[in-house]
Nucleic acid binder design. Structure first.
Length: 487
RNA sequence: GGUCCUGUGGCCGAGUGGUUAGGCUCAGCUCUGCAAAAGCUGCUACUCCAGUUCGAACCUGGACGGGACCUCCA
């Protein structure tokens, strides 16, 4: 097997992947915070790691893929702020935090399923691991690298930095960080400007809080990932992933916590996915260029000309490398959608290919190129380019311009199955099969009538039928074998 | 303000010190009664300036543009 290379943020270069305990691989990816609708940028990250998960599995690794659900942190009652303060509502009228968590967790899973992303093997929640988080905070205090002030536990960054490289993941200089860190309200208790909270004292109005030896509070912003990755993957595992925006703060602090806790760097490879932009600008609510997954699917948004199916969007995302920014625009989406359809049609064509006596193309070499692309830091854009080569070959064989022996046709089918479906996780867009069956019969009836007209050289009638079908969204293709159609 | 990333043809996007990325669009051809689909062909790009080199879009320096992070964030 060819070696797999992946880009490690920690070393800033591509490294050969070597599992700690082959064939097992431990992978942790920072999951979503389920306090609002899942952001499309989140989807991109999780789809990228879905492909990494799928490819590692395809290579034969037994992957334990842990992706957390952040359902705890600093949830405060919204109604307590502002003029319209209605504090005495019936309890049932207000949403329980766990109701919000439930709503958006369900929504998140639904969206990921629409994108055909495989569920992680473990999907732990922060609220389910309060005790483990407290244990880590306690142990870091015992090691002298954290301290408690007035019910809040802080990590002592400068003390940690005396014996460890705190900024290993970003390569920044600690002095520069110290100079540039801004003062934040309500954190006067911190000893150092870079110190961050492991456990935070809860104000009475906090809806989610737990008892601890430091009083009532809730876990800090980074500790849940340390707790859950350690619990399910051990003190050291293979791959840790997340969005690039997590690199500087969240992951830097996570590493510090793990090292302080057990003396070990948590994982060998840090992978980061790049951000998503819309027409060149970062997707954000304040810029008004943000849309939700279901708006993208339905096209019901001012910025969208039409809807795009989840598979077309997934394919679109894969035409950009995961470490490059991905720019959404109608033009780009439409281009991808067409290309995706062409690829999927070539798969249909492949099923009915007639083998020849010789092969005019080297399919085995093409398959190797596909592996080379994926082994080069999961380069899906290049993989797709090779699959388009395969599509061209298939169409040429179908047009009797090139010949392939049976074994090569089988190999092509294997390639499509492996790369298009198993690794990239694409599939035929779901349609209502029953409706489709009936529709197929009806349209063939119309096409038969049209062919009768054609046989009688009544072209004005046959063209009228075709034009009206086209207007109804049915595209007619005439071949020597007869007429076919597609939507 | 600081740190880092980035700038590729009409559009989207890979990649490499000297050799076709690929997709979409557009034009021509083949096929077709005409189309559509498909195939073939063409459109040959790399922000600017300077340097290193036999040779740079790819390395170095600078300028300009874009972005991310520094604050919860994928």
């Amino acid at each position: 097997m060819q070696p797999l290379f992946l880009y490690n943020t920690l070393s800033r270069k591509k490294e050969e992947f070597k599992a700690l305990n082959p064939p097992y691989v431990g992978m942790y990816v920072c999951g979503p915070t389920v306090y609002s609708d899942v952001h499309l940028g989140n989807c991109r990250t999780f789809i990228s790691f879905d492909i990494i998960y799928r490819y590692l599995s395809h290579l034969g690794y037994k992957v334990r893929y842990v992706r957390n659900i952040t359902d705890a942190g600093h949830l405060e009652s919204d109604g307590d702020v502002g003029e319209d303060k209605i504090s005495k509502k019936a309890k049932l009228n207000q949403l329980e935090p766990m109701e919000i968590v439930q709503t958006y967790t369900v929504d998140f899973r639904k969206v990921m399923e629409q994108f055909n992303a495989l569920p992680p093997t473990i999907e732990p929640t922060a609220t389910g691991h309060i005790i483990e988080q407290q244990e880590i905070a306690r142990e870091i205090i015992n090691k002298g690298l954290a301290y408690e002030v007035n019910g809040t536990v802080y990590f002592d960054v400068e003390k940690f930095a005396q014996s460890h490289n705190y900024t290993a993941l970003t390569g920044r200089k600690l002095e520069e960080l110290l100079e540039n860190t801004r003062d934040l309200d309500g954190q006067q208790d911190k000893r150092g400007r870079l110190d961050f909270a492991l456990w935070i004292k809860a104000k009475p109005e906090h809806l989610m809080q737990w008892s601890s030896e430091w009083g009532k509070g809730f876990p800090g912003w980074h500790i849940e990932c340390s707790a859950m990755s350690t619990k399910y993957l051990g003190e050291q595992f293979d791959i840790h992933g997340g969005g690039m925006d997590l690199q500087a703060t969240h992951h830097t602090n996570e590493i510090a916590q793990n090292i302080a806790y057990c003396g070990k760097q948590p994982c060998n490879y840090w992978l980061h996915t790049n951000m998503l932009t819309v027409s060149g600008q970062k997707m954000s609510k304040s810029l008004g260029n943000s849309f939700l997954p279901h708006e993208l699917f339905s096209g019901k948004h001012p910025l969208l000309d039409k809807g795009y199916g989840p598979m077309a969007v997934r394919f679109f995302m894969m035409q950009t490398h995961y470490r490059s920014t991905l720019d959404f625009s109608n033009e780009a989406l439409q281009a991808s959608e067409k290309g995706f359809e062409r690829l999927m049609e070539s798969y249909q064509t492949l099923q009915n290919l007639t083998p020849g006596a010789t092969s005019g193309e080297d399919i085995k070499a093409l398959e190797n190129k596909c592996y080379e692309a994926m082994n080069d830091d999961f380069n899906t854009p290049v993989l797709i380019a090779h699959l388009f080569d395969a599509a061209r070959i298939i169409n040429s064989v179908n047009d009797k311009k090139v010949s392939l022996i049976q074994a090569d046709i089988v190999l092509l089918k294997k390639m499509y199955q492996n790369f298009l479906f198993d690794v990239m996780g694409l599939k035929v867009e779901a349609e209502n099969t029953k409706t489709t069956e009936v529709l197929d019969k009806v349209i063939h009836l119309v096409l038969d009538l049209r062919n009768k007209a054609k046989a009688e050289k009544n072209f004005s009638l046959s063209d009228e039928i075709r034009d009206k079908l086209t207007n109804s969204g049915v595209q007619v293709k005439d071949t020597k074998e007869g007429s076919s159609w597609k939507i």
